[in-house]
Design a protein around this nucleic acid. Structure first.
Length: 519
RNA sequence: GCGCCGGUGGUGUAGUGGUUAGCAUUAGGGCCUUCCAAGCCCUCGACCCGGGUUCAAAUCCCGGCCGGCGCACCA
């Protein structure tokens, strides 16, 4: 983490104050676990989504993005297993009112796995073993299910039971047949989706980390089962270094991640197949683009008890933050679990043709939590203490605006010239105009929401068509000719040139003597 | 969901039974200002919600909502 102490409460306060992210329905007291994103937050999230699309959709020729319904009928979740498994059996102590997972209590007492037991069986064990409240030894209630899905009814009379989707993945399986056919897809191919999912968490916590409504960016990659270890573009990422914590390392209490290339990890059998390794490698690149320091993230293989019943392997991207370790991406090997289940329940063939034979593809699922990624981006780029104001050192391509355009003063024709330049710039860049307050205050306002560059029109501009560019990170300024402005900004925003390089090749001398800083 | 603590302008706060609810900052407007939150003037803006006690409640009591921490939970 950055050297300076990071105060998470302080950052949350800034997020609220600047309307970047704040509790939903605030004027009615709010609702736990649901947040709204304001204009600046929305812009930054858009940039993160675009980065994701660029890397995981546009960069591939066979990944198709869809947008599915949030509300899905009950049978979907009977098939997917969510109705049976997406809940926790809870018991409550009659004396101290504490809640416990019934299956965990039974496991702790008997030493046997109990997560597959039905409610009656759990209740039977509790009676049989005379299990009492671990806190106060009080009697326990009969276990009841706490379903994590939001339930509703569709239609006016005798409505159809429906649920808000707990993951975006389900739409993809439901749409598999139509999308693959319409897009003339052949294995391997992927279907991607960015959208909201809903889980009725028992206790939402930690601001944007555990929400009841959240945004996922998911891909279901459909692969021939026999080709799972044969990704056509594996060579492109096999030298990508990754940091791994395997199950074995966890069993041996090894905390320091293993540094290894994606290719070598597959060769050594640490990652089960090329498709999963391909995504892990791409995710490492994605996290680098976000600007997360390398030492602060790793991929952890989930332990057997953490792995869902349908998954043959799970690797989570975990990031060390001032709030502790946060899981931001999950990679699951769902095999043919979902397509087979939906095929059976819907009586629909969910196969695809491969070498003249129908096959049920296997699925590799990289699942990104946008809200957590966004939150971590704000946490790690937050800067405080070096200026009179706090600011965000966002990578320029993720900033809400690329550039702020200011007239030095709002008189002598400067605003008119600045407006004109602004109108030109905004055609190609995300630009914002600001003429209110002292110039220093306007730079401060730009810093506060992470705008990386400010262009100022001054009296010299009127004479020789040069403007100043101010760099957020160094607060330095250079003067460039307006003819070079687009090129310079493009180079800086896309990180194709550093500020120092631009200073060397584009800066022009000021024709005036600096009058020095006003005190 | 349980326990403890908390909730005053947008933000941070003062106010422990009777205040025109104060301050700072932000925001909007104006004057000034030739590059890093300068200064001056004006303006907008608050006691989480609902009950109760009391002549009188931001203040005391009860409930709810929201938040923090701990426990539990996170398929």
């Amino acid at each position: 983490m950055p050297e300076n102490e990071i105060n998470v409460d302080e950052i949350n306060e800034v997020l609220i104050k600047r309307a970047i992210a704040f509790p939903a329905a605030e004027i009615y007291g709010g609702i736990a676990g649901i947040f709204d994103f304001g204009p600046i937050g929305t812009l930054i999230r858009q940039k993160v989504k675009e980065l994701w699309r660029n890397m995981f959709i546009w960069a591939e020729e066979n990944v198709f993005e869809i947008e599915g319904g949030l509300l899905l009928p009950e049978p979907v979740f009977k098939a997917s297993g969510h109705l049976d498994t997406f809940h926790d059996p809870l018991v409550q102590c009659e004396k101290c009112k504490s809640m416990f997972r019934a299956d965990h209590l039974v496991e702790d007492t008997t030493g046997e796995r109990a997560d597959s037991l039905a409610l009656e069986e759990l209740w039977g064990k509790i009676i049989e073993q005379e299990i009492k409240c671990p806190k106060c030894k009080g009697s326990l209630t009969e276990p009841r299910q706490f379903n994590l899905m939001f339930e509703t009814e569709v239609g006016a009379t005798g409505g159809k039971k429906a649920y808000l989707r707990p993951e975006t993945a389900q739409n993809i399986f439901l749409d598999f047949r139509r999308v693959s056919h319409a897009m003339r897809a052949t294995l391997p191919f992927g279907i991607a989706q960015i959208g909201r999912s809903f889980r009725n968490e028992i206790a939402p916590r930690n601001y944007l980390v555990r929400m009841r409504e959240f945004t996922q960016m998911e891909i279901e990659m459909f692969v021939h089962p026999e080709q799972i270890n044969n990704h056509p573009y594996f060579y492109m990422i096999e030298d990508q270094p990754i940091r791994l914590i395997t199950r074995k390392m966890q069993a041996e209490q090894e905390k320091e991640p293993l540094e290894i290339t994606a290719g070598e990890a597959v060769k050594q059998g640490l990652i089960p197949n090329q498709f999963m390794a391909y995504y892990i490698a791409k995710e490492a690149q994605f996290v680098e683009e976000l600007g997360i320091p390398r030492d602060n993230y790793w991929f952890r293989e989930l332990l057997e008890e953490e792995t869902a019943h349908y998954s043959a392997a799970n690797f989570d991207l975990e990031i060390q933050t001032p709030m502790g370790v946060i899981e931001c991406i999950g990679n699951a090997y769902r095999q043919d679990y979902d397509l087979s289940k939906h095929s059976k329940h819907s009586k629909t063939k969910l196969t695809i043709q491969y070498e003249n034979k129908p096959v049920v593809p296997h699925v590799i699922e990289p699942s990104f939590g946008l809200d957590r990624i966004f939150y971590i981006l704000m946490l790690v780029t937050y800067q405080a203490g070096d200026r009179k104001w706090s600011w965000f050192k966002l990578p320029p391509y993720l900033a809400p605006y690329h550039v702020k355009v200011c007239p030095l003063q709002k008189k002598d024709g400067l605003p008119e010239v600045a407006r004109e330049l602004f109108e030109e710039l905004r055609e190609e860049l995300d630009a914002i105009y600001d003429q209110t307050g002292s110039i220093g205050k306007r730079y401060a306002r730009a810093d506060e929401i992470g705008i990386p560059f400010s262009v100022t029109i001054d009296y010299e501009t009127l004479e020789n068509e040069t403007v100043t560019i101010r760099d957020r990170d160094s607060t330095e300024q250079i003067r460039v000719h307006v003819d070079d402005l687009f090129e310079v900004l493009h180079l800086l925003i896309n990180a194709d040139a550093t500020w120092e390089e631009i200073k060397g090749s584009f800066a022009v001398e000021s024709s005036k003597k600096s009058k020095g800083k006003r005190k």
